[in-house]
Amino acid sequence: MSLFFTITALITMASAIAAMTLRNLVHCVLCLTVTFAGIALVFLQLGAEFIGFSQILVYIGAVSILMLFALLMTRGGTELTLKRWDPVHWITGTLIGIAGFGVMSFAIFNSSLRQSKIPEAKADSLHALGNSLLSQYVLPLEVMALLLTVALIGAALIALPEKKVFRRNASFSKNQESGNK
């Protein structure tokens, strides 16, 4: 365990704890961003450049921004603080956390990763990654792409009703115009 890794891990853990405990929701999201950055740093230390920078690009550049947008759009600018300290939330949250951790550790311990030795980071990991994504894992990739497209269409559908009102009004004004003639 190198010094650099220790520092990264400490920052990541501290910001994760802060993201759970801070009162102000925007502060929580910003701390979560630091956690994402720490995870990206861990990836970089393992030699996974592509995944590390993708982590920054996707999680810091898009996911955290999305969370911030969602916060501001739904709660308004004033009510951004959590007020209640509800024990029910606390207990359910802990349970969900334990369950998630259990599922993930079960999956990791039963996967082939544990048996084989950790391979050395290859110099050409990027090409290998691309090749395996588009040959061996092409089905999961396509399924995920399809899922995201469906989500996108769903989001567009949610935004659509406003447009219907708009059209009706347009026809309304057109009727008025013809009536005037």
Partner: peptide
């Protein structure tokens, strides 16, 4: 000189969005 140079560039561009949000908020 890294293998994923342009990805790094765009990742930094994405980080600037967060900085702008921080400034505004």
């Amino acid at each position: 000189d890294i293998e994923t140079g342009i990805l790094f560039f765009f990742a930094m561009g994405a980080a600037s969005e967060l900085a702008i949000f921080m400034a505004g908020w």
